[in-house]
């Protein structure tokens, strides 16, 4: 597009325009900076929720139990390899958690002889409140505080309660968001138990 500009000769004190090469470098620098920023934000938009863990190896965890027969014992995913693990993240202030507490405890008592381990992770709770909750629902499987909220973050939990079903090979087979019912829990565990050890 040929254009006629309103051009007056530049006064002598106006610096000469930057050479085109230098200007191009500046353009690239500015665009690169903007690109980095936008890229970062785009990454931030990536869904990072617990559901995306389904079918993937479970992130490692370790807790120190505070309740009942297991008080003081350490439990980690590595120790429990070869067992089916039900990892339940809960909190004493969470109303929905209370709805599934008995279901989980009964299942623990029923499936413990068959080699299923239930692990409770107490998220954002004080020990006093946590213990009171465990006592109220007479929960006997190992429960421990989530120190530094590390397990919650590693499992990309989006709230409480969330329950992760990990098979004998350490793969997350199912993620339950919100409270779980007894029929669903039994069905899931039966399915995991019938799966052979060698089957991936």
């Amino acid at each position: 597009m040929a254009e006629v500009r309103e051009e007056t000769p530049p006064p002598p004190y106006v610096a000469k325009a930057h050479p085109a090469g230098r200007r191009l470098i500046w353009l690239i620098v500015v665009l690169a900076l903007l690109g980095t920023l936008l890229g970062l934000l785009a990454l931030g938009l990536q869904p990072r929720t617990s559901v995306t863990l389904q079918g993937k190896p479970a992130p490692p965890f370790a807790i120190t139990a505070i309740n009942g027969e297991f008080a003081g014992q350490k439990f980690s995913l590595a120790d429990l390899r070869g067992h089916i693990v039900v990892l339940n993240i809960w909190a004493s202030w969470c109303v929905e958690c209370a709805r599934e507490a008995t279901v989980l405890e009964q299942a623990w008592r029923a499936y413990r002889p068959r080699g299923v381990w239930f692990i409770g992770v107490d998220y954002l709770d004080t020990d006093t409140a946590g213990l009171a909750y465990l006592k109220r629902f007479d929960i006997t499987y190992p429960n421990g505080p989530d120190i530094g909220s590390r397990i919650y973050q590693a499992y990309r939990a989006t709230g409480v309660p969330e329950t992760f079903f990990i098979d004998r090979d350490g793969i997350v087979q199912h993620v339950q968001i919100g409270p779980i019912g007894q029929t669903q829990l039994d069905a899931l565990l039966d399915r995991l138990l019938t799966q052979g050890r060698s089957q991936p």
């Binding site: 106006v14 200007r23 353009l27 903007l34």
Partner: peptide
Amino acid sequence: LIVSVVLLFLRLDSLRSEHA
């Protein structure tokens, strides 16, 4: 952002300062 930045660089010449 990209369109603005590119446009700005293309037109830098017409944005020279008139005074020091």
